[in-house]
Design a protein around this nucleic acid. Sequence first.
DNA 1: ACTGTTTATTGACAAAAGTCAAAAAATCAT
DNA 2: ATGATTTTTTGACTTTTGTCAATAAACAGT
Lengths: 187, 187
Amino acid sequence: MQNKIDLKSNFGLTHEELDVTFKSYSPESMLANQYFLKQGFVSDKIGFVKEGLLRAFFYTENGEEITTHFFTTGSYIISYGSFNNQTPSKENIIAVENSELMTVNYQKQKELYLKIPQWNQICKDLADIKSREMIERTAQFQTLTATERYNLFCADFPEVIKKVSLRHISSYLGIDIATLSRIRKKR
Amino acid sequence: MQNKIDLKSNFGLTHEELDVTFKSYSPESMLANQYFLKQGFVSDKIGFVKEGLLRAFFYTENGEEITTHFFTTGSYIISYGSFNNQTPSKENIIAVENSELMTVNYQKQKELYLKIPQWNQICKDLADIKSREMIERTAQFQTLTATERYNLFCADFPEVIKKVSLRHISSYLGIDIATLSRIRKKR
DNA sequence: ACTGTTTATTGACAAAAGTCAAAAAATCAT
DNA sequence: ATGATTTTTTGACTTTTGTCAATAAACAGT
């Protein structure tokens, strides 16, 4: 599973370091439509998606939801711009379906940085991964048509297509829902 | 200057820490059209733009340049995906005009992490800043028309408009150059 | 199972954006 | 300064995408 994150093999934590890490993390079950983070609140935790699907979104001035991200199994939920510098979040993160997470709060994660210096590197690596994803996503907006973006999305996130309503995908891809409905029909 | 990065006031380095930091950084002059980083090479340094303007871009399969970023005075040049994990860069970074940088190589920056733990935090903060910029940029693609994106770009980067050719701005904004030329005429 | 609500599809049309090609303007190198 | 090259503008046209509104389908709660 290439897209799954494995702290041991991907980031080279030793057995002991893993032990310490797991002691800091707690399992957390989320019900569908339950909020992991609400707009205006400070994100006090990081979550790792053991199983499930979550969605990040914000509201425009005229009240429409814009979906910014999907968190699939094996990905890390970090609200940059809220977690690291502890400022109120501009986005909401909500469970699309019942999900199983491992979470750690701000204080405990900070302690991990000190206890396990390798965590500084992991944090940088995670930021790198996110960064590369965002660069890729931007490049898609720069170079691809609506149809091409949708096709790529289907290829990249086949499970998301099945579970998430079309209007969320349409706002994620920056395509009007009527247009996306027609694009989808053509396939 | 809100958009300028100041290691002392923005990131809370002490006087001594600043001294150590500056000893690690070297001044570097760039001529217009000189490459800071070339596609396929590993980025061996971070650059801070004291004065000037640089541009990051990549080539599509059919050979056209897609501009991904402008580095204005006061911003940090880090090629994520090349510097942190030392893999070959997918993008080029070139000076738009003669520019003055402060640079530090990979090894020296690593030493800074050890000598000045605060640099770990700075690195996270810089990643946060970049991250917020990218989220904002993506949101613009999701919600704005070509004209709106161009107007916002003019407001956000008035100096870039003056210095960079229209085709670079057009690829940066994901707008055909002929379309952008017409948009510009209307203002 | 029924009702209200949300979501998706469809049609008719409008607006936005892209394409191709040619001309004009600007820039560069000698 | 001049010719070559690159960049920008413009016109005529096509394609893509959005808008509005109505209908159909799916879903949720009782």
